[in-house]
């Protein structure tokens, strides 16, 4: 059985049209999937369902054979780590303390143990955050905060990692490093789902594209197959052009 299974997962806010109309998909270990689609297509909601922040109105979301609706939060967070789009405001903790919050799902007692500190050190190292360890989270820039939140998710050591527009605040160097990091994590057997609007980067780096449109999967496949200009135009409402760069690298441009 696949690590992640979505069975006709649907979601609607009360009194509003559904945000997700029955998404069915499977994903396994060592996959890097980019979730793309227009604003309001349901990308973040889909991540929220997988993260367990929302319960499907109908259908199911299974990770490692366990149902999100029937699994306690701490157990679910040992399976799935979610890096939200926005950092919480006015967090008075240091970088180290924020990263250690990723260990709460493992916490039995009031204090962190040696394992927790080891996980934190690894995460700081991986995100090149060691020089920031004692800094106050709220004094960091948006991009630095994003990296700290990603480090906290890494410290969570879950097989599934969800990232909601992780490169929104990142400069090119850090964005390139992020994708390298995701490749490394994929090699370690993690399943990574990234919501992004950077279609060319998604095309180059991901194994698979989930194209969401009106709360349903309009395409699910390898980038070359999923990112057809005609289909993208139908979904995004602007003309798309495909270009091929060196070594067959795929680029997309859009607009007139």
């Amino acid at each position: 059985m696949s690590l992640l299974v979505l069975q006709s997962a649907a979601f609607a806010y009360p009194g509003s049209p559904p945000v997700l109309n029955g998404v069915s998909a499977e994903a396994g270990v060592g996959e890097l999937i980019a979730i793309i689609g227009p604003n309001g297509a349901g990308k973040s909601t889909l991540l929220d369902l997988i993260a367990g922040h929302k319960t499907p109105a109908s259908g199911r979301c299974l990770v490692d054979g366990r149902d999100s609706a029937a699994t306690p939060r701490d157990a679910w967070c040992r399976l799935v780590a979610h890096v939200p789009q926005q950092a919480p405001a006015n967090v008075p903790y240091t970088v180290e303390e924020v990263v250690l919050t990723g260990r709460i799902p493992y916490g039995r007692g009031l204090y962190e143990n040696e394992d927790d500190h080891q996980a934190m050190e690894e995460a700081l190292e991986r995100m090149r955050l060691a020089p920031f360890r004692g800094r106050s989270f709220q004094t960091l820039s948006g991009g630095e905060q994003q990296r700290v939140l990603l480090a906290a998710a890494l410290a969570q050591q879950s097989p599934v990692l969800l990232l909601d527009e992780p490169s929104a605040h990142l400069d090119p160097q850090n964005e390139a490093r992020l994708w390298t990091l995701l490749h490394d994590l994929r090699a370690l057997g993690r399943l990574i789902l990234v919501v992004t609007h950077h279609l060319s980067l998604a095309a180059h780096h991901s194994d698979r594209i989930w194209l969401l449109h009106h709360g349903a999967l309009a395409a699910d496949g390898p980038p070359a197959a999923a990112l057809q200009p005609g289909r993208l135009e139908a979904v995004f409402g602007v003309p798309f052009h495909r270009h091929t760069g060196e070594q067959g690298r795929l680029f997309l441009s859009y607009g007139d």
Binding site: H53, R73, C77, A81, P84, P88, A89, I104, P105
Partner: peptide
Amino acid sequence: RLARVLNVVSYGDTWAAGRGVN
């Protein structure tokens, strides 16, 4: 005994929920 959880609850439901807190 609730103290460690309150540390994340005080900065938002989503953040706390993402850290395994009900």
